[in-house]
Design a protein around this nucleic acid. Structure first.
Length: 681
RNA sequence: GCCGGAAUGGCGGAACCGGUAGACGCAGCGGACUCAAAAUCCGCCGAUCGCAAGGUCAUGAGAGUUCGAGUCUCUCUUCCGGCACCA
């Protein structure tokens, strides 16, 4: 609230120019995120701990584009005005055959007076789609205003249309229509019989490549950059244009007409206007006994909340009942969490000590909004001196996948009865393919596919039931093992059983291990090689946060240990020690217990992390795959230090290889050290 | 529609820089143990031809680059996430 009451941050009360607010006719409050657009964009390059995918999405969302702002002169009631548009394609200026303005544009509003048909169309546009997704899919419609502008360089008359696809909130709320070089404009022109004038020549054979400007007077023959530069220069000389940077990012409208959310601390006074609630009266607290009834913001019906006194003149005034978007709260909670109990400020020195967050984890669905708002808020807090020197809230970001589960239903009259997957048993054919699904009473249910867990589809899994039945280690192991953290996780009861089976096998192996402990033997080279190779890979996967293959590495090590001959207790001892440490972050309880029980030490969590022994990874003889023309034809064993000639002759000696080389000449031999040899014939 | 992803056996997934596709597990099939079942253990397990050795095909579809492509390039299809007032 301190930050919001600051005039630097609050843009103030205003009328949003978009259709949405016109429709509702309510004041909006904005946070000026656009003031940070350049910083938010540039700093993406300094976030090595963020996924490229997320950074790219944010970059496109901020949407910096360099172009030219162009004024098309027109006369209205004897007054000379300019219709301003923004375009990244100033080189196509001579191809403009119409102008299109948003329904909320002043020209559209003006033209609709005295033109009932146009007025109706303008109203229809305002009532229509609001979301960008809907807007992009609606049929492109338009209507002529009867007005026209002059081409800024030729003076030619160009008609002005109202288009339902033009956004008031981007650029100037008006665009120039160049049907020859823009698909959307072409569709529009085709529909309303507007002329198409080609002004760019593409090189023969490649309609996508840029050729040069044509049909554009003195600009003919120029390439893209030259044409844009020249046209911008000439427009500037006439006062009808200049180069401009445009952003797709809009200011953040935080007003919400509902109960839950932080109150906007403003009082509306008939005499003083909109007055911020003074710091000493903050925070504005919400009443806690409202009952939302679905008929709008319950705060409006609360006289005790709405009726107040003007902080400035003391006369009766009304409290703002809009609350803030809940994204406002989620934009800085991580900093606040580091200052518990602090009731005089947003954050204190403890937040300055702990921030930024080392590792942030959240769903990919937050790639744009939440993660961008948080970066914005951290900058505001920096500039307010709350988090000095800090710009980025999250050093490392991991976007985890959602948990999915199967869902089943049965038609019950007009509606569907959703059956929890736990109550469904499956029948399979000889190959294991599911052929039918039934409940315990033998009645068939319909499989509805796999999707996010939800109450409405009754396909949730209660982790507590799982913990009660198998223990937390089993639940943890399954979740880690089933898929990498960044992918979706498909819930499977059988998979949980498998994880449980693995931990029981480990337990049983540990019992046998304890019984024979102390017996000495000679470690076999092969077993050590296998275990240390797996460990090396697991440590690499761990760095990549690919935990599912770390879990599978643990299974591989146990498999290797179980295959060991009884007398190989040296490899056994070492292998078990590696296994328990590698597995301990995934299943801490079992590992902690076994580590002590088998007398490896007191606490597995404080034992050094296992590292592969380079000596164990050395082999005297290695296996190479032999290919002929890239196809696998056999394998050979060669000494570690064998040279190319030796490898080649060994490869040629292989019986199956000879079958494919016989009668042909070897043109080339590719040797990939440690992997394969390919004979090209 | 735009932006960002993904697609590999019956299923979840693995395959590091382009180098043995299917690791590990689930399900399934066969066997051991058992009076029987459960649990456990052993074996098989992409498709196809073959007694076998081995061959052919196969990583959503189609093309390309390469000695060699699941991996790189282009075109396309389907699905998932986001699109600013769901949060």
């Amino acid at each position: 609230q301190t930050v919001l009451a600051n005039e630097q941050v609050i843009e103030g009360r205003g009328w949003r120019t978009g259709a949405l607010v016109e429709k509702r006719e309510i004041p909006m409050y904005f946070l000026k995120i656009t003031a940070y657009a350049e910083d938010l964009l540039k700093s993406l390059d300094e976030l090595p701990g963020w996924p490229e995918q997320v950074k790219l999405m944010q970059k496109n969302w901020i949407g910096k584009s360099e172009g030219v702002r162009i004024g098309f002169p027109y006369e209205l009631n004897g007054e000379r005005k300019n219709l301003w548009v923004f375009t990244t394609r100033a080189d196509t200026l001579f191809g403009a055959t119409f102008m299109a303005v948003a329904a909320e544009h002043p020209i559209a509003v003006h033209a609709s007076q005295g033109n009932p048909k146009l007025k109706e169309f303008v109203e229809e546009c305002k009532r229509g789609a609001v979301m960008e997704a809907e807007l992009a899919q609606i049929e492109k419609k338009g209507m002529a205003t009867g007005l026209s502008v002059a081409h800024p360089l030729t003076g030619e008359k160009i008609p002005i249309w109202v288009g339902n696809y033009v956004l008031m909130s981007y650029g100037e709320g008006a665009v120039m229509g160049v049907p020859a070089h823009d698909e959307r404009d072409l569709e529009f022109a085709g529909k309303y019989g507007l002329p198409v004038k080609q002004v760019i020549q593409h090189p023969a054979g490649d309609p996508t490549a840029y050729g040069m400007v044509i049909n554009s007077g003195k600009y003919d023959g120029l390439n893209y950059q030259q044409a844009v530069d020249e046209i911008a220069k000439d427009l500037k000389a006439k006062g009808l244009g200049e180069k401009q940077t445009q952003w797709r990012l809009r200011d953040w409208g935080i007003s919400r007409q509902r109960y839950w959310g932080t109150p906007v601390p403003i009082v509306h006074c008939p005499a003083c206007g909109d007055v911020p609630v003074p710091d000493e009266q903050l925070p504005v607290l919400l009443p806690e006994d409202v009952v939302p009834d679905g008929t709008g913001n319950p705060l409006n019906k609360r006289a005790s909340y709405v009726e107040t006194k003007c902080p400035s003149c003391g006369r009766p005034a009304k409290r703002e009942t809009d609350t803030m978007d809940t994204f406002v709260d989620s934009s800085w909670y991580f900093a606040r969490f580091a200052s518990p109990g602090q009731d005089k400020a947003m954050v204190d020195e403890r937040a300055r000590y702990w921030m930024p967050v080392d590792q942030y984890i959240g769903g990919i669905e937050h790639a744009i909004l939440h993660l961008l708002y948080s970066r914005f808020f951290t900058r505001v807090m920096r500039d307010e001196g709350l988090l000095p020197g800090m710009a980025e809230p999250f050093t490392n970001l991991l976007t985890q996948g959602m948990v999915l589960a199967e869902s089943y239903y049965r038609d019950a009259g007009s509606r569907r009865e959703w059956i929890n997957p736990a109550d469904v048993s499956l029948e399979r054919d000889a190959k294991g393919k599911i052929v039918s699904a039934k409940t315990a009473d033998g009645r068939e249910v319909v499989y509805d596919g796999i999707g996010t867990m939800s109450k409405s589809k009754n396909n949730g899994v209660d982790p507590q039931a799982l913990i009660d039945k198998y223990g937390a280690d089993t639940a943890r192991f399954f979740i880690i093992f089933a898929s990498p953290p960044t992918s979706t996780l498909e819930w499977s009861d059988e998979g949980v059983e498998g994880s449980y089976r693995f931990l029981r096998r480990l337990w049983a192996y540990a019992a046998r291990f304890a019984a024979r402990k102390g017996r000495k033997g000679t470690p076999t080279k092969g077993a050590r090689f296998e275990i240390h190779s797996v460990l090396k890979q697991a440590n690499y996967d761990l760095q990549k946060l690919q935990f599912n293959t770390v879990a599978s590495a643990c299974m591989k090590i146990l498999n290797a240990l179980e295959r060991l001959p009884e007398e190989d207790s040296a490899a056994d001892e070492e292998g078990m020690s590696i296994l328990l440490r590698l597995l301990s972050p995934i299943t801490p309880h079992v590992c902690h217990h076994l580590w002590r029980e088998l007398e490896f030490g007191e606490d597995v969590m404080s034992a050094p992390w296992p590292e592969p022994d380079p000596a164990a990874l050395e082999l005297d003889e290695i296996e190479l795959v032999v290919q002929v023309n890239g196809k696998l034809r056999g394998s050979i064993r060669v000494p570690k230090q064998a040279d190319k000639a030796a490898i080649e002759s060994l490869a040629m000696a292989n019986a199956n290889v000879q079958k494919f080389v016989a009668g042909q000449s070897v043109k080339k031999v590719v040797v990939v050290p440690g992997r394969l040899v390919n004979l090209v014939v």
